[in-house]
Design a protein around this nucleic acid. Sequence first.
RNA 1: GGAGGUAUAGCUCAGUUGGUUAGAGUGCUUGCUUGACAUGCAAGAGGUCACUGGUUCGAACCCAGUUAUCUCCACCA
Length: 886
Amino acid sequence: MNQPIELPKTYNPSEFEDRIYQNWCEKGYFTPDVTNNAEHFSVVIPPPNVTGQLHMGHALDETLQDILVRYKRMQGYNTLWVPGTDHAGIATQIKVEERLRVEEGLTRYDLGREKFLERVWQWKDKYEARITGQLKKLGASCDWTRQRFTFDEGCSKAVREVFVNLYEKGLIYRGNRIINWCPHCITALSDAEVEYSEQSGFFWHIRYPVKGSADEYVEVATTRPETMFGDTAVAVNPNDAEHAHLIGKTLILPMVGREIPVIADEYVEIGFGTGCVKITPAHDPNDFLVGQRHGLPIIKVLNDDATVNAYGGKYEGMDRYEARRALVADLEAEGYLVKTVPHTHNVGTCYRCHTTVEPITSDQWFVKMEPLAKPALEVVRDGRVKFEPERFSKIYINWMENVHDWCISRQLWWGHRIPAFYCRSCGEMTVSRDDITVCPKCGSNKMEQDSDVLDTWFSSALWPFSTLGWPEKTVDLAKYYPTSVLVTGYDIIFFWVARMIFSGLEQTGKEPFHTVFIHGLVRDAQGRKMSKSLGNGIDPLEVIEQYGADALRFALSTGNSPGNDMRFSDEKMEAARNFANKLWNAARFVRMNLTIEKVKLPASSELAAEDRWILSEYNKTVKSVVSALDNFEVGVALSAIYDFTWDIFCDWYIELTKSRLAEKGTGENLAAQNVLCYVLTGILKLLHPFMPFITEEIYQALPHDSQEESIMISSYPSEDQGLDYPVESLQISRVIAAIKAIRMRRNEMNVLPSRKAKVYLETKYPDSFGTATHPFFCRLASASEVIVSDHFTPDIISADDAVQIITDSATVYLPLSDLVDTEKERARLTAEEERLVSEISRVNAKLANESFVAKAPAAVVEAERTKLARYTENLDGVRTALAKLK
RNA sequence: GGAGGUAUAGCUCAGUUGGUUAGAGUGCUUGCUUGACAUGCAAGAGGUCACUGGUUCGAACCCAGUUAUCUCCACCA
């Protein structure tokens, strides 16, 4: 890559993106030097699930990370970005089972645990490779030598270590509690894994006969009548006058015949529903608590697949909904059904398969959350972990304050086995870091490991330190932990971010990262969530193929502010691609005018005014880009680069250099070349974190320091006050304003650019309009000649000979009188007069306000005064012009 | 029930601690084969910054309330 290369005529990203990425890899630029003592900047990737391929949301997430990582790397930080993937327990298992069913008509039970897991590993290898390839296409500068997987050996070791640690501290326990059960996935779920969706159903009002009383009934209402097989009481509020007399009586469960008591519990709300609540401790979280308070028996009536068990009597074997229908029909036939009321309610569903979950009591493993939540709340409250944007810390705190114990066992095969071993001889349970073959209590060798696996989020919770080698005391861990920033979407704050924070604190004593940078969702052009069922998902690879990775990255990182959702559309991609094309062509222009082989900024005395101006503008841009990036304002930073590149560098500076470039071999020509190259290289560096490929490709085509053989290891620009030239900045902006004013007038009058005209410039600032600036007027404002004076006598500028244009620093006369429509001109000038009068009265009012003058900062007041003077002057000019028209 | 986001040009969105005449992209109108670029150049039209009140010399921005809309959390049988 040392030889500058010519730039082809058209911007064709597919031609160089892969080549460049490969070169970076070969050079090892992504792998940091651990012996480098510079301050570290480290990031772990939110590991994509090996369930499939990356979608637009991932592309956004990876782009933002790569921008930060490349920025910090160029700034000289010892920078590490750890890549990897997540085994995604339940999600992956479902996918593999589904494929097994469709392709071979088999279930996982047909294959058996071992053979099934082999299939999952094959699946993992395939999709991990696919994801890795996509990350590379995107340009992600991760250190592939450190690639990890949540279920690899090291991570598995960390998982066991954490499990045993927590168990030994009493923070992991096993218990029979009510949990969310997915009858399709046949496993327990944590609270976070349940999604609620509104569904229409019914309230069935049912009469339960009172024992020993021929015509006395208690009426209860339920949305899930089939759970009555498991009722072990009916509760009323002890203060409910209407129902208090029932307390202590015995009821007979219809269709079942079992006797249950009426109990008193304040959980029942007086006046809501019928005032009597059937209590099913095995199938409702609230009823479970009531049951505990009253020592009620727990009768579980559903099997793991949500069919009714023997407690359902004649309904045994029926699916829950089938049983519900049959039971309701029978209740009605027997006269127990009072009424059926339509009712919409929120029903919990499995976040992976969307089957309605059943609350069920079950033996599961739990993490005790209260002691872990406390420090996790503190680090966010005291700012050791900062959310960016800040508002997400409220969401986090709210969740963490109300968190319940975490159910971590899953009845799946794909995942980390729970390291609990049961002795079949004496029944002893042993939890251990290493596999146990001999019972430590009785010495029996009949040991059996718990068949359950851990929640997939248990291993992701350890990701920031397990990937760096923990629990070993590795160099990486010492060097790069705690990590610097975590970049992720707001949708997994609870699943992942929260759990990483308390796990990191508990296991390592340190917060796992200092900043959580939250982004929103990528939606489709209509603002809908991209989803498989809608078929509106867009494949990042296809977009890259069509527009290039740089354009995709540009589109994803501009035009939206942190934490907000964004829409993705073809129009955005086109705009991004157009910008890349613009930059490409600007570079081609610079390249084709180049005779120098080394860039050196000329001494200030050799610089033209426009050179000093562009350097000042460039320096301002550097300043604002750096400050925006330091504040995670990625979009703001990028638009500053965009505006500078297009509106200032291309539209003005390049145009202003053309006359000098045409004269080869002069000192002026060399100065222009050097400044063009200097500023263009600066643009490339500023832009590199956002658009790594095109910037590298162009960089290689320009002269550059051999110490900085690749732009990605070059140093990021920093503010340089030596580049500020306030005087020339002002002068050139006057010239630009005059050129714009002339263009505007000519355009209004429909004068073709080909028709040249003399430009008479009457100005108090002749220094700003020196002869060196005259070619600018010729080239950009169709001037044939420029005459500058501080005052033109009427014989030079006669009243009917010229169009008059008033700018803030000059009055311009254009001899185009034959083109002037006097009426239109008068209307225009009158409108201008009105505008100025109104502005002047506004400013006057402001300045007449004593408290404004007294309280506003002096600079603001001064600015108003200047404005007033300028307006007044302009108004004079306009009125003079109007007078001349008559 | 609780919490939060959003409301700015026809459309999609920026607007950094309150301070010139509120910006960009796109679309629209007009003109241009300008020696890098028509994926372009030049010019233009287009806004009651949702509404009401308050704070302030000064509000798109801060505060309170209202309306609309989206999201998250909790979830009464």
